[in-house]
């Protein structure tokens, strides 16, 4: 326990070491999540459009609610 708190104190520089790691982790995890989400989002849009193209255009024209709009 004592060893852990000594380690976490970072020789008195805890207030500088840990925030720099935390900020890096935050930015990099955020970018990873956002990139995954963007990929899933456009893949879903494409799947919906392709399904629409294979399906009958007439049905869509009769009920013109586009899920993407």
């Amino acid at each position: 326990m004592d060893q852990l708190s000594t380690y976490l104190a970072m020789g008195g520089y805890a207030a500088f070491v840990w925030p720099s790691y935390a900020f890096a982790a935050l930015v990099m995890a955020g970018l990873a999540l956002a990139s995954r989400r963007a990929l899933r989002h456009s893949a879903r849009q494409l799947a919906a459009l392709e399904a629409g193209d294979r399906g009958d255009r007439r049905a869509r024209r009769a009920a013109p609610q586009d899920p993407s709009s």
Binding site: L31, S35, A38, L39, H41, S42, A43, L46, L49
Partner: peptide, 18 residues
């Protein structure tokens, strides 16, 4: 991450074209 993002851009462009 770049691979994911380029893939997303390619798909988005295809969506726009369609």
């Amino acid at each position: 991450l770049l691979l994911w993002r380029i893939k997303a851009e390619i798909i988005a462009r295809r969506v726009r074209t369609l």
